[in-house]
Design a protein around this nucleic acid. Sequence first.
DNA 1: CTGACTGCAAATAGTTTGCATGACG
DNA 2: CGTCATGCAAACTATTTGCAGTCAG
Lengths: 145, 145
Amino acid sequence: MKLIEREVVTALRRHGYKLTPQRRLVIQTVVSTQNHLTPIALYERVHQVYPNIGLVTIYRTLEILAKLKLICEVHAGGSCGSYLLKRPLEHHHHLICSECGAVVDFTGCDLSQLEQRLSLETGFEINDHLLEFIGLCQACQKEAT
Amino acid sequence: MKLIEREVVTALRRHGYKLTPQRRLVIQTVVSTQNHLTPIALYERVHQVYPNIGLVTIYRTLEILAKLKLICEVHAGGSCGSYLLKRPLEHHHHLICSECGAVVDFTGCDLSQLEQRLSLETGFEINDHLLEFIGLCQACQKEAT
DNA sequence: CTGACTGCAAATAGTTTGCATGACG
DNA sequence: CGTCATGCAAACTATTTGCAGTCAG
């Protein structure tokens, strides 16, 4: 079992959620996927391994994982809606390939200066932000030629 | 008629779209609203003035305005989906109040350095980005006390 | 054992499409 | 006047809810 998978499982247990085969499978799939998934896409994948699973269970599992901040949403590049993604547990942002949907996480952006300027200018008390870059990954650049 | 409204109307005509009373009303409403609106919320407002209008017309008008880049989407703070907003025509970003939905546009963020770093590190060809801040506006801060 | 979880079915919400009528330019 | 736009109804898609049976702890 991957390290991240174990972390997720532990977090679930710690919060008193039961670890069912269905949840285990959803977690495995999310953890082992590089790009973001819609609930439906996730359902289709899991369904191949465990045909009995209901789409509802996917939604409910995602809801829990989101509440525990173990996954996060993707918005940019038209992929809005409820696309989801595993997460390296610190605060981070996404770089998304508009062609294949691959997602690269990055940290180390420093928005605090901008945040402070905006705060001063507008009087807002800023709590959070959303930053995503959209482009073409190396593989898709090559294919485009 | 507001300056922005005139600009929008002109852009519509320039692209060969007809200016119907319904479209005029949608535009007026979008232009005169400070915060972002769902298609449904927009429908309800317009409907009060012009009860005959169909929700479909709202969707189709928004589609056109979006294609002409006269409006843009809001994502952050759970307001995702298709919330929309008038736009000061240059490239800009949003600062959104999570309480009342007010939106402040800002420009002058410089992400090019970060963009370049990411480009080098990942090999991505970066085309666009999405940046939004979420917080409390001054009015809502006072109310919270 | 027992409360939480699942899966089905049905309800709800949001958005899109087809088509006859009507109106802008 | 012709063509594009409107509005209704219906089709679709995405998501949520209610409920009885089942299972992890």
